[in-house]
Design a binder for these strands. Structure first.
Lengths: 343, 343
DNA sequence: GCGGCGATTGGAAGCGCTTGCGTCGGCGTG
DNA sequence: CACGCCGACGCAAGCGCTTCCAATCGCCGC
């Protein structure tokens, strides 16, 4: 294994100089630096991560904790985070909580505290005060993606605003009987998100002078299947049927579209559907949706972290609100004229 | 930061003993061990990963390289690998190649060689000889998931057998005009897999005395959309239409089902469809499929790796063939009687 | 009762880097 | 022209563990 001394010898300098030259810290004459770099390249020298970490106390590695892996949102965040981290020269070690039920405590109590990561990004996780504290006690910065966490900087989108925008789109098309199929709070780990999305729907309706009808809200978990089932139920009675629905995720929304088809309803003629996410399948189903950009969220989370890692954490926890955007496709249109609709 | 000497002092022993007691290596009297463990627990001591790694040369961390993240197969493999690694006390650091085009070389030349991982798992990646060699030169074991790699132990499924099984299922139902929608070799990174799956279809047909018709094979990339488009084309002409199709992945197969519906064809009455994977959406669409178990593949890959890491690599590269299984749902049935079919 | 052996434990030498502290010149000022 | 400063570089002390080697000690077999 070629070590720093080999490089030093070959370049005719001390190991200290090699270290400085290669890391860019400290003053090194240009000529010397080049000689060192050349020697390192010729020998195929790569610094030993563990030796470097032991000496500096920094691992150049950050931990990302996700509640699931098999979900578009999480993998997208992961993808963005990974890309940005790589640019910073950092590694990403992955912790997935979806395994056994006690995996969560294992991750927090053993793995994350094991000095293997400089910081952690928690995606859609409601962290307990102890979890946050134990990390902070070790001097490990922490940032969250999705949903605020007490005392922790976070990047997220305005979940109220998202469904509000979706609902307003529908209202602007002339719909007034608008349903909402949303997250079932108990079934998901991402705490306030489902509730906030419902609030956005309610707020938009009220602002338009329409009182949201409880029977037009239907909870569901974030899967296509669950969206399908919820839609079947909500659309069952033609007299109570909404002319449009705001659905809390694209996957659910696709389930809704499929349900509508199976019931002989034409989308968007009989039912307008708007989802949230801009999932990769959304274009295929012509789904109008409010796009969020999870990859970007992952990237921003990394940037936030890097800032905390660099500077002494002066500024207080920022809550970064990321943009979202309505994308109109073919699943929404004006409602059918009343008389025709009844027919 | 509490270190090993703190524990040693508290337990009244030397650091050497603490190390031995906590790591389980070497002989330590039971009473002593307990005393040390107690002291460590009270102090909340956790070994410093970098110090330990520097001393032992082992990182207890393995790298997993995937070509994409947003695909059911990869995340499932990842999930299985992660779970098993965690049980072994190992971390998983993730490398995703789907970013920029030069990310691949960056990963291999910089990150993987940086002494941060003890070994690597390559998922659905055709590695070049240099990539394999450079890893082996560093003494880093390597195992592949999906598709054989020269000189590297691999876990995979029998891709020929998988489509063969699917095709035989269709044949046994009485179908004889069976199409295949499969991977486009050029568009995917997973090399022989698409070809092998096509071979399975051809073999099964020939064994049944049916010559596979080239116009009943249609290449497509592994997405729902692409399956949809391919199906629209293959099913376009009623006189040439197959009564059944074997589709190389569930996502594509769902696209096929959707296309059939849009063309007014009833599945399975007018068209039987069988996919491969047992994707999480398969039950929802009633898709008959040949299940493979990617999580299990991830787990087995880890086990293979651990064996290489433990023993001196005596045995030569094993190629582990994992099981697959036909799951019959509602997308396949006997073909309609001939006369009715034409009608 | 004695030599020897294995179980226990401590001492101390690294593992391969980073970095504070010093030294050595060369150059800008007064 | 002398002084002081600063850039460039080398020395050597760690960073916090692991583990080889040696020292002890209790106990067994002859």
């Amino acid at each position: 294994m070629v070590g720093i001394d080999d490089v030093a010898r070959r370049a005719g300098v001390s190991t200290a100089t090699v270290s400085r030259a290669l890391s860019g810290r400290g003053h090194v004459a240009t000529a010397t630096r080049e000689r060192v770099e050349e020697a390192a390249a010729e020998l195929g020298y790569v610094v030993s991560a563990s030796a470097s970490s032991l000496a500096t106390g920094r691992m150049r590695n950050i931990g990302v904790v996700v509640p699931f892996l098999n979900r578009w949102f999480y993998t997208s965040v992961l993808e963005g985070a990974q890309r940005r981290l790589m640019q910073y020269g950092y590694d990403l070690t992955l912790y997935n909580l979806s395994g056994s039920s006690n995996e969560r405590s294992t991750v927090f109590e053993t793995f994350l505290l094991r000095q293997r990561v400089d910081a952690v990004i928690a995606v859609s996780l409601e962290l307990s005060a102890e979890e946050v504290d134990s990390l902070h006690a070790l001097g490990k910065p922490l940032v969250g993606v999705g949903g605020p966490i007490r005392g922790v900087p976070t990047v997220s989108i305005d979940d109220v605003g998202v469904t509000r925008l979706a609902t307003e789109h529908l209202l602007s098309l002339g719909h007034t009987v608008i349903g909402h199929i949303g997250g079932d709070v108990d079934a998901e780990m991402s705490f306030h998100m489902p509730t906030n999305r419902r609030l956005g729907w309610e707020d938009a309706l009220r602002d338009a002078g329409v009182e949201p009808r409880p029977e037009l809200y239907s909870p569901a978990v974030f899967t296509m299947q669950s969206g399908y089932v919820a839609a079947k139920q909500m659309l069952g009675d033609p007299r109570l049927r909404p002319t449009a629905v705001v659905v809390a995720s694209d996957e659910m929304a696709i389930g809704v579209i499929l349900a509508a088809r199976d019931m002989g309803l034409d989308v968007p003629r009989d039912l307008s559907v708007v989802g949230i996410d801009d999932h990769e399948l959304a274009p295929f189903f012509g789904l109008t949706t409010v796009a969020q950009f999870p990859e970007q969220q992952g990237e921003r989370a990394v940037e936030l972290l890097m800032r905390e890692l660099d500077q002494s954490r002066d500024d207080e926890p920022a809550n970064l609100q990321l943009p979202f955007e309505l994308i109109v496709r073919s699943s929404t249109s004006r409602p059918r004229p009343e008389r025709e609709q009844r027919g």
